[in-house]
């Protein structure tokens, strides 16, 4: 069941290469640079900008999970990936739904 990342196939026979890590590092730098660039140069309106920033951050999760954390590898069925995805869903649900719930009109009127 273990699925290997392309580069790390057949350990013991072939030397593992750094390619995967370099690709991962460069992608994370590029994604970060785009995020910083967009946010700090004020080229976009705030609403769409936040959406784009969130998508970029989401891509960074994928980069770290795939290139560095080897989420696709493992011993047996990918239970760890299942729980991680479930955890991600709940994390976003809690954060976003809390904002939704706590943004109730009476309260917002009181703070501002």
């Amino acid at each position: 069941m273990a699925v290997h990342g392309g580069v790390t196939r057949e350990p013991g026979h072939k030397k593992h290469k750094a390619t995967q890590y370099i690709v991962g590092y460069l992608s994370s730098l590029i994604l970060t640079a785009i995020a910083f660039g967009l946010a700090l140069t004020h080229t976009m309106r705030v609403g769409p900008l936040i959406v784009v920033l969130t998508i970029l951050a989401g891509l960074q999760i994928v980069v770290q999970l795939y290139f560095f954390m080897h989420i696709t590898e493992g011993d047996g069925p990918p239970f760890h990936a299942l729980f991680l995805i479930l955890g991600l869903i709940f994390t976003f649900a809690i954060a976003l739904m809390s904002v939704w719930i706590m943004g109730f009109p009476a309260f917002m009127a009181q703070v501002s």
Partner: peptide
Amino acid sequence: SVISYFVWAHHFFTMGAGADV
């Protein structure tokens, strides 16, 4: 176990979060 995560605000309906919530 999954649905149980999406029910929590029913403990404070009276907070007045609005009809949608």
